[in-house]
Design a binder for these strands. Structure first.
Lengths: 214, 214
DNA sequence: GTCTATAGAGAGATAGAC
DNA sequence: GTCTATCTCTCTATAGAC
């Protein structure tokens, strides 16, 4: 049942299911989440979920589409502003950190997806990350000013991996590894610190005046 | 059944089970792995696994203990050499990258553990990471030369999070996100590139001559 | 739209033979 | 030590009432 042919109540229920699913899939993974739990959180019965999503897998895919779609939109908006190259890169990193901070559940979902995606079972994530890769390529790598800029020749994939890996790891791991401190990595202050660290790291990676070889 | 009271054949079987379990838990997660699959890979029957590990959970815990224990030993050995502070830090990072490169399955396991460890369910990972945190504290943070060194006041947890996050993410994510390239992130060359990137990043984070505020 | 009831598959655990 | 056979529980999916 697609979202756009529903009445007001149904649309609300569907949204609530999606929201509860995102949180639970994020916290416990696909296998570890029971439809029962999702239904309970929404306040309905398990069987009602299938009115909106034909099975568990479809619900999960809908969560992925929602999460990655929202980030894609945010990134596209950030890159649409016609900024100079380095500022555009900064904006991309910044948008990413803000997004992860705003929806920390996403961090865990990405962590799990990456762990699941072996060399054999690679299709799952790719479908959702591809549009994002295309966006970066089109709006950064293939722009004339990128070729003109005298950047260090770092593999963009390494850069992306560092940006994605650190943010996701920090948001997901910090609360678990620091039970004593009451530091919240998604607080505005912590996110800002992390964002500045990341921006510094990325800028330096791209700086051709620094030696890039071993 | 502990490893030290077994005969030669049994000891071999137990080791094979542990090895197969590490690989499968890493690739598919705890829930996604069937004892059936582990047994099949070893060439025995499901019921025989229970002779060595009383249940699935115990087998999984044994895998964790093995993985984290081995890394702890490697790190302890690296830090036992009485090097100057900055070289000791380099050695720690280097040991970590080598370890992840040598046992890429570990990367996925850590990814999953981090994703599982919410603010609520934090006990699981902590038990295994604590000795490692203690080691770093004792051999780096609490040494007199650390206090004397004029390092930037970065949160060590941020540093650790960046080191761990990038390596784990790179090793686990790269093969999945780059189906076209036949780049293997665990190849000696790629690992070396990554290691140098990481060392550079860490050194700069700790360098007090760089501004650390936004 | 949401419910109750139930069917059916999957997988871990256990008993006991060899 | 390793096997076969079986028990049992959990959870998804389906049928159909309201």
């Amino acid at each position: 049942m697609a979202a756009d042919v529903l009445g007001a109540r149904a649309s609300r229920t569907r949204g609530a299911v999606l929201e509860a699913a995102e949180e639970l899939f994020s916290a416990r993974g696909f296998d570890g989440t029971r439809l029962e739990d999702i239904a309970e959180r929404v306040g309905i019965r398990r069987a009602s979920i299938v009115y909106y999503f034909k099975d568990k897998r479809e619900l999960y895919e809908a969560v992925l589409a929602s999460v990655f779609g929202e980030f894609h939109a945010a990134l596209a908006a950030a890159l649409a502003r016609d900024l100079p190259l380095l500022e555009r890169i900064d904006a991309a990193v910044s948008t990413w950190v803000d997004f992860v901070g705003r929806r920390p559940a996403v961090a865990r979902i990405i962590l799990r997806e990456v762990a699941d995606a072996g060399p054999d079972r690679r299709s799952a994530v790719l479908e959702y990350t591809q549009p994002f890769v295309d966006l970066v390529r089109k709006q950064i790598l293939e722009r004339p000013d990128f070729a003109e800029a005298n950047l260090a020749r770092v593999d963009p994939v390494h850069v992306a991996s560092i940006v994605a890996g650190t943010s996701v790891f920090l948001v997901a791991a910090m609360p678990a590894l620091l039970p004593d401190r009451q530091l919240n990595p998604t607080s505005a202050e912590q996110l800002e610190v992390h964002k500045q660290e990341l921006l510094r790291i990325v800028r330096r990676m791209l700086d051709s005046s620094e030696s890039q070889s071993a």
